[in-house]
Write a protein that binds this DNA or RNA. Sequence first.
DNA 1: ATAGCTATGTGATATATATCACTGACCTGT
DNA 2: ACAGGTCAGTGATATATATCACATAGCTAT
Lengths: 208, 208
Amino acid sequence: MITDSAKISIPNIDNEMKQQLMDNGTIKNFKAGDVILQENSYIKTLPIVLQGSLKVMREEEDGKEILLYYIKAGETCVMSFLGGISNDKSKVKAVVEEDSEILLIPIHNAQDWVSKYPSWCDFIFKLYHKRFEELLSVVNAMAFQKIDQRIVELLNKKYQLTGNKEISVTHQQLADELGTAREVVSRLLKQLEREKKISLSRNKITIL
Amino acid sequence: MITDSAKISIPNIDNEMKQQLMDNGTIKNFKAGDVILQENSYIKTLPIVLQGSLKVMREEEDGKEILLYYIKAGETCVMSFLGGISNDKSKVKAVVEEDSEILLIPIHNAQDWVSKYPSWCDFIFKLYHKRFEELLSVVNAMAFQKIDQRIVELLNKKYQLTGNKEISVTHQQLADELGTAREVVSRLLKQLEREKKISLSRNKITIL
DNA sequence: ATAGCTATGTGATATATATCACTGACCTGT
DNA sequence: ACAGGTCAGTGATATATATCACATAGCTAT
């Protein structure tokens, strides 16, 4: 399958590598809300985000969940990488955040390339490291910060993702991503509005 | 510097690789409590634990901290790996848990070997993955579990580390590792003792 | 325009954990 | 055996968050 080379823009990936990605991968389009990777499912492909973004969540049986990090354009899901190789079931859920175009690479290719192409190996290592630091900051937030600070940081992350100060999200969604209750989020958001840091309307929060 | 080959037992590391480790590494001994890696310090060596164990903590400025995971014999600190390469300051603190013998590898060697020796690359990737999952379980614990459950799991981890049901630890240490207060731990331990799950004495907790 | 749905606002109350204040128990060095 | 330190036990209280219960607001389809 031949895909459009122009679409693949990954930092520090050389042309030979890019050719491999094009020859072996398949491009698919997804809509916001689509689930790319289910918790406890087996992993057969490595998703590389070409456009849009995914969010990766950890989920508890009872439906409670918490946001781990976002996967942006030019990045991939490291959990899929070694998880796929060791034939693990996925321990996380990946959901499309913004409408996305995703390049799916068979997991065995992704593995082979590590020893063949230094730029690929480097790409994977750098991402592992980035995710590791992001997870660390989740741990940090949960251990040392109160929920109001965490809400502010989450809103800022969403702003950075899209560059838009108008964030389309419900209180329930924020509560889910923070692993808390909707009422808690509503109250704290109201407080932030009183402090003139944000303004609230239905399905939308605007950063001031 | 030539070190004793017999001491180096790392799963799936071949002899050529082992020779490299011996030729380029230095063995040092540390006592329980020694700090191997300070938060915010630069990283110049990759520590491989030959005997004993380390614990890796995340620390907040005000002295509050939380346990991330243990590094056991035959393992290394992945945070040091790419952190060292990108010349990052360490975001974690590593403390010797049990008296340890540690092989220190210059960080540039560790990096070079990734492309030269597939077994080394594999070793590093597998560890990244393992740590990733451990961090995930820390996130999980903090998000979804109450402190009493977390104490029980921490005691079990410590038991698995040494194989000894008598655990030498103070309530303060447990509180630090869980990121909570000593009184909270004392009360919950007392409760566990009433339930006949453990028995308490000064500096020691015995799992029943 | 109405019905029905989803999202939000908010009081009341429950619970887990954090903090403060103090006591006594145990250990170590002299 | 005593002094001074560290460790553990525990009441009282404060705080953050979770849960329950309900009211109202805004959107959507007919």
